[in-house]
Design a protein around this nucleic acid. Structure first.
Length: 604
DNA sequence: GTGGGCTGTCATTAG
DNA sequence: GCCTAATGACAGCCC
């Protein structure tokens, strides 16, 4: 019995060896075996399983750490809310002012300002979670967004969050940042939402975390509308992007819901998950430019080195079926979102002009401060930045380059008008009838240049001299893709002008030939008329000659004094001018011989 | 739906 | 060898 088992075991090992030989043969022939080759080897399979087990344990450990950090951060936020009670709202400016020490002791009491507007303000501090619960319970009362937002306590809490999240902004408060009550409520929404922006967040990064303040992650942030760009200098160092629960939530939401092109406050349930049911405020921020890029342009854009620019990722995303949706996590989305308030970064442009469009159909106003995408890490030299402020303002509206210095973050109403040839009118002005409708204000190359963040205008690229063009390329550290695009733009632009000139010349040639044809036709008519006149004159001379002939013939008499019969004789003139009377039955040769005889006889 | 005009783009060639 | 102009051919858009 034992021998049989041993034999079976030996046979089994032998069979395994044979199978491994076959697998090796198949593997060498690069045949698809369905699974990795190692899976057929029991020893290697065990090792793989062990490795996976270790990785799983590491992952679980990491998740636990993240959860702990989440809880810790929530606790800190809660403490921050509690500190809110130490502030009062300035009735005139709406700014947060610290409570006097005497009042701080009874901070649980509502301020005089807030009691007028906030009925929910009680003797206890109103935490965000409390507000959530109130709003949840108040669903039957049809609490509107506006009335809710007029809850000054909540607003103040939001402001506090903003100030805590972005302490750097407080330093700019004297210039750009002013969280005053004069700011629109929508702006505050955007400010809060901007804190949740996760620039450059990778899709695979920390998506498993839970946000305790939000009951469910199904409350989706279906857009990144509230994610204005942030400059590297304005990056928020206090926010750990890799551990921020908000960010993970955003990331998760974006990952789960990529297919959204509309932006709505209902999505703001990131913070207030139950408001969306009663406040379906929708912000239509569909971008014409974006649509054009996605639907018409990006599909055929041949851009390499997608890792060079965030736009590259956008284009790759756009090339897929979920082009629009995938932008949710794309830095390009942030770029587009910076134009919130207007339907498009470019739809308010005059021709090729740019300019901040403050406030839009949604009634949103642009914050006094601007964020810049700190995920955009371009390696531009300083001259690049300088150029952005000086010469090459063809950047675009709202598409501020990430290397702007803080001083440039003020509102700069750029003149983005592309240089035109002297006397040249913008194309759209030349033929407005053709451009009305769906035709966009930007050419494809202009869109491409903006998408690739080329620091030159298309006109500069096309119309510059070779030396200037090469100098431009050398002056700015452009990526290979940008260089290729710039060269293509120049080539196409040159060829476009050449084609226009060629057609113009062709038309001129056609017109010239047409004129020549008409002139020749006129000459032909003139010659025909002249010929007719000549023929007429010839006929007249012929008649005159005939008349003279008859007169001369009638005057001739023979030897007997009788006139010659015209039927028998005719007058002929020789080359020397002599006239002879010749009988009609005689030939010309006879006449010549007779004339010669007469001459001889006369000489003799 | 179809044809013509206009325009942009590409490929090619010549200077 | 590179750049540019010129030009034929083609495609897309609009009327």
């Amino acid at each position: 019995m034992v021998l049989v088992k041993l034999e079976n075991c030996i046979n089994l090992n032998h069979k395994i060896d044979v199978d491994m030989d076959l697998i090796d043969i198949l593997w060498r022939q690069d045949l698809d075996m369905g699974v990795a080759r190692e899976m057929f080897d029991p020893n290697q399979r065990l090792e793989l399983e062990k490795e996976r087990e270790v990785e799983l344990q590491k992952q679980q450990q990491k998740e636990r750490e993240l959860d702990e950090e989440t809880v810790k951060q929530e606790k800190e936020e809660k403490d921050a809310w509690e500190d809110l009670t130490n502030y009062i709202i300035d009735g005139e400016t709406g700014e947060l002012l610290p409570l006097p020490p005497a009042e701080q002791t009874e901070s649980s009491g509502p301020s005089t300002t807030e009691t007028q507007t906030n009925e929910n303000t009680t003797e206890t501090p109103l935490f965000l979670e409390d507000a959530m619960s109130l709003l949840q319970n108040d669903g039957t009362n049809n609490l509107s967004m506006n009335s809710w937002m007029e809850n000054s306590t909540i607003q103040d809490e939001l402001e506090k969050v903003i100030l805590e999240k972005q302490p750097n902004l407080s330093a700019l408060g004297d210039t750009n940042v002013s969280y005053s009550r004069q700011n629109s409520l929508e702006m505050r929404w955007r400010d809060v939402a901007s804190l949740l922006e996760l620039p450059g967040l990778a899709a695979e990064e920390n998506v498993t975390q839970n946000y305790s303040a939000t009951p469910t992650t199904s409350g989706l942030i279906q857009n990144t509308t509230f994610a204005p760009q942030m400059s590297p200098t304005q990056a928020v160092p206090s926010i750990d992007l890799t551990t921020s629960t908000n960010h993970s939530f955003v990331n998760e939401s974006l990952t789960q819901n990529p297919a959204n092109t509309t932006f709505g406050l209902e999505n703001s349930d990131l913070l207030f998950p139950n408001i969306s049911a009663t406040v379906p405020i929708t912000m239509n921020t569909s971008s014409d430019f974006l649509d054009d890029l996605l639907e018409d342009e990006l599909s055929d854009m041949e851009i390499e080195n997608t890792a060079d620019l965030p736009t590259m990722q956008m284009m790759d995303d756009a090339s897929s079926d979920s082009a629009v949706s995938s932008m949710g996590s794309s830095p390009y989305q942030e770029w587009t979102d910076s134009s919130i308030g207007s339907t498009s970064p470019f739809d308010t442009l005059e021709g090729a002009t740019g300019g901040m469009h403050q406030g839009g159909a949604t009634g949103f106003t642009k914050p006094k401060f601007e964020y810049y995408d700190n995920s955009c890490t371009y390696s531009m030299d300083p001259g690049y930045q300088d150029s952005l402020h000086t010469n090459y303002s063809g950047s675009d509206n709202g598409t501020s380059y990430p290397q702007f210095t803080p001083a440039s973050k003020k509102h700069i109403h750029h003149n983005h008008t592309y240089p035109l040839q002297p006397g040249q009118q913008p194309k759209e002005q030349k033929k407005p009838d053709r451009d009305k409708g769906t035709r966009t204000m930007f050419s494809r190359d202009e869109k491409r240049a903006k998408a690739m963040r080329i620091p030159f205008s298309v006109a500069d690229i096309v119309n510059s001299a070779v030396e200037d063009f090469n100098e431009m390329l050398q002056k700015y550290a452009l990526t290979e893709a940008q260089l290729q695009l710039v060269r293509d733009i120049r080539r196409r632009g040159k060829n476009k002008v050449a084609a226009q000139n060629c057609r113009k010349r062709k038309m001129e040639i056609i017109f010239t030939l047409d004129d020549e044809v008409k002139a020749m036709q006129q000459e032909r008519d003139r010659l025909q008329k002249e010929r007719q006149e000549m023929e007429k004159e010839h006929l007249e001379f012929k008649n005159k000659f005939s008349h003279l002939y008859m007169e001369v013939f009638r005057s001739l008499r023979d030897e007997n004094g009788r006139p010659y019969n015209p039927q028998e004789y005719s007058l002929q003139q020789t080359a020397d001018g002599n006239v002879f009377l010749i009988p009609r039955n005689s030939t010309s040769s006879d006449h010549t011989e007779k004339a010669q005889k007469k001459r001889k006889s006369k000489k003799q």
